[in-house]
Structures are given as structure tokens and as C-alpha cells.
């Protein structure tokens, strides 16, 4: 099986179509979820909240029928980054006062370890949230939701086009590569062979992409994309269910509580509540 064929199988986006309650959920709720949970955890002064939210995300992943992939994604990210941060922050953070272990060449400090776990927790909430959002949301639905929320339709198109253009160019490169090998251009082998193949492949790719942009522009014009003073409707219709409305409120409330608590915690000395 040649390399070219593999490229052709690449998907348009990271979306995995699976019928689940999370998939059917209004994309705006998911965006709220990622942002509110992420920012809330980042602001909250204790590290347990982030891990509680990560546990919650695992439940969401299970509901979305993505538990396996989600676990793999989280573990693949969490393990190396935790080790790295534990070494850097745990051993060398200037905040380190309490010594947990003495290795001779460096001391493991409690403050650094806590900081490392807090950072990893917050990152996991953000990344896990984004992962779940992108894998369970059809891009068209996401853009419609953003447009409903007031995003300019041109900006919306930009998001969709960039999602579509990349795999399209990849497919083109695969075809061009085949066409050039059929003219005697070696594309596999040593560095210098590959380098020689660069121009015959990149030339037609750039040119055809430029032509493609022109054609896209004309297509958009003929389909009324430039019409002014008209609010475009969308083929994808989205409605917020009462449950989703409530979920949005809960998420915002979570964010507010977290931020308020963070402010209160930071102002304790000033308020005279003792440290």
C-alpha cells in the first residue's frame, strides 16, 4: 500500500459521527462548557476541582460513546506533561519551602508539586473539553451555532473553509505526487531525492490552489454570498431545549462561583480573615 493512498483517507475534521446525547447537544452549550469549566478551574485556588471536572468529563465521554478514545487522549497527554512539570516545578520551583524528598542533587518541594498538579489539572480540563467538543460536533453545526450567536457569516465561512481546504490540498498533493512519479520523479529515498521532488510537487500544488481560490470566490458570488442587508438562513437549524438552557445557566453559575471564590481567597489577608 503506497503512502499516497494513506493521505487520501484523512478526514475533513476531527468530528466522529456517533449518535449520542452529547452529539445531539447544541454546540453553544459545549462551547460554554469548555470555556466556563476551563476558566473556572484555572481561577479556583485548589487543585481538587480540576480533577473533579476531569472525572466529570470522563462521564461525558462515556455518554458520548468515546470513553476509550478519550481515555487514550488524556493519558497520552497527562503522563508525559505531569512527569515534565513534576521535575521542573517540583525540583526547581522558587516557591518550594516544604521538602518532601531529598535526592541530594535537588529537593522535591511540596509547593512546586502542588503547582505542577494544578497546572496539569487545568490543562486537562481545557484540552479534554476541546477534544470532546470537536469530536462530537459536526463543523457545520458549530459554525451555525456561532453565527446564531452573532458571528459574521464571512468569518463563519472562513472557519468552515479552512477545515475543508486542508484535506482538499492533501488530496491534490497525493494526485500530483502520482503524476510526477509517472514522469520519472523519485519521491521516496534519500534526503536529496526528496528535495529534488519538491519543486515538481509544490509548483502544481500552489498554482492549482490559487486557481481553486479564484473558483471558490466565483462560486460564492454566484450563490449570493455577497448579498448585503439580508440575514442568511442556515440549512442546519438549531434550537436550545429547556434542559440546554438550564445547562448553560449552571455552567455560567459555576464560572461565577469559581471566580468569586478565587477573588475572596486572594483578598483574605486584606479582609483580615487570617492566612
Amino acid at each position: 500500500m503506497s503512502k499516497q493512498n494513506k493521505i487520501k483517507t484523512k478526514k475533513t475534521s476531527s468530528y466522529i459521527p456517533l449518535d449520542s446525547p452529547i452529539d445531539r447537544m447544541h454546540p453553544m452549550v459545549k462551547i460554554y462548557g469548555v470555556l466556563c469549566l476551563g476558566i473556572g478551574c484555572a481561577a479556583f485556588p485548589f487543585l481538587w476541582l480540576s480533577y473533579a471536572v476531569v472525572a466529570f468529563l470522563f462521564c461525558v465521554a462515556w455518554r458520548a460513546k468515546l470513553l476509550g478514545r478519550f481515555s487514550k487522549f488524556i493519558i497520552a497527554f497527562a503522563v508525559p506533561i505531569t512527569c515534565m512539570l513534576l521535575i521542573i516545578q517540583g525540583l526547581y520551583s522558587p516557591k518550594n519551602v516544604t521538602v518532601l524528598a531529598d535526592f541530594g542533587f535537588a529537593r522535591l518541594g511540596l509547593e512546586g508539586v502542588v503547582y505542577a498538579f494544578k497546572t496539569v489539572g487545568t490543562l486537562l480540563v481545557f484540552l479534554g473539553g476541546f477534544y470532546l467538543m470537536t469530536t462530537t460536533t459536526y463543523p457545520g453545526k458549530l459554525v451555525t451555532a456561532m453565527q446564531d450567536a452573532g458571528l459574521n457569516s464571512k468569518a463563519g465561512y472562513l472557519v468552515l473553509a479552512s477545515l475543508n481546504v486542508v484535506p482538499q490540498i492533501q488530496r491534490r498533493i497525493a494526485v500530483i505526487q502520482e503524476a510526477q512519479t509517472a514522469r520519472g520523479v523519485e519521491v521516496e529515498g534519500t534526503m536529496s531525492t526528496r528535495f529534488k521532488a519538491f519543486l515538481p510537487i509544490i509548483g502544481p500544488t500552489v498554482m492549482s490552489s490559487l486557481v481553486d481560490v479564484q473558483e471558490r470566490g466565483m462560486t460564492l458570488e454566484t450563490r449570493g454570498f455577497g448579498v448585503k442587508d439580508v440575514r442568511p438562513t442556515s440549512f442546519v437549524a438549531l434550537y436550545l431545549t429547556p434542559g440546554e438552557k438550564a445547562a448553560k445557566k449552571v455552567l455560567v453559575a459555576f464560572l461565577i462561583v469559581c471566580v468569586l471564590f478565587a477573588v475572596f481567597w486572594a483578598l483574605r489577608p486584606v479582609l483580615g480573615l487570617g492566612v
Partner: peptide
């Protein structure tokens, strides 16, 4: 074995 692709734009670049 020569192969002429359907779309000449895939082959021409000079």
C-alpha cells in the same frame, strides 16, 4: 510505462 493524467494541471509545472 508512461501515464498521462486526466488533469494536465497535475503534471505541468515548468
Amino acid at each position: 510505462v508512461g501515464y498521462v493524467f486526466q488533469n494536465p494541471d497535475d503534471q505541468l509545472f515548468l
